Simulated assay, not measured.
Amino acid sequence: MSKHIQPRFTQVLMTCDQQGLIGGNMFTIDDCKIPSNVSKEWSGTRAKLTRKKAKLERASQRIIERH
Rank of each mutant, 00 (worst) to 15 (best):
D17F: 12
Q19V: 00
V38A: 14
C32K: 13
E57G: 02
I29A: 02
K55I: 08
A59E: 15
K40D: 11
L21R: 12
N25S: 13
Q18N: 10
C32N: 14
L49V: 07
M26T: 06
R51F: 11
Q61A: 15
T15W: 06
L49T: 13
V38I: 02
I29M: 07
T45H: 00
A54G: 05
R62P: 04
Q19W: 12
I63Q: 05
I22H: 01
R51A: 12
N37P: 01
Q6M: 07
L13E: 02
F9Q: 04
M14F: 12
A47C: 01
V38N: 08
R51L: 11
K40S: 10
R51G: 11
N25Y: 02
K55M: 07
Q11T: 15
Q18M: 09
T15R: 08
K48L: 05
K40W: 07
I64P: 00
T15G: 09
G44C: 12
Q18P: 02
E57M: 00
M26A: 13
L13I: 04
L56A: 02
P35K: 06
C16I: 04
P7I: 00
T10G: 09
R58I: 02
M14D: 10
W42R: 10
K40Y: 10
C32W: 04
I64N: 00
R66T: 12
A59I: 05
T15C: 08
V38L: 13
S43W: 03
D31Q: 09
T15Q: 14
F27P: 06
A47W: 00
K3S: 05
S43P: 01
V38D: 06
K3F: 07
L13F: 14
T50L: 06
I63G: 01
I29G: 02
T10R: 15
G44S: 14
R51S: 08
V12N: 05
I63R: 04
K53G: 03
S43G: 05
K33A: 15
Q18W: 12
S36Y: 10
K52F: 03
K48T: 08
D31M: 07
A54S: 07
D30V: 11
G44L: 05
D17S: 15
P7D: 00
P7V: 00
T45Q: 00
P7K: 01
M26S: 07
R8T: 11
I29V: 15
V38M: 05
Q19T: 02
I63S: 04
R62V: 14
C32P: 01
I5D: 00
K53W: 10
F9I: 01
A59R: 13
L13N: 10
L21P: 02
N37W: 08
R46Y: 09
A54M: 05
K48C: 09
S2E: 13
H67P: 01
E41W: 05
Q18C: 07
K53H: 12
P35T: 14
E65T: 13
P35L: 04
F9N: 05
P7S: 00
M26V: 14
A54D: 04
D30S: 11
L13Q: 03
Q11D: 12
R62T: 04
I34K: 06
M1F: 06
G23E: 14
I34L: 14
T28K: 05
L21I: 07
H4R: 10
P35D: 12
R46D: 10
L21E: 07
M14Y: 06
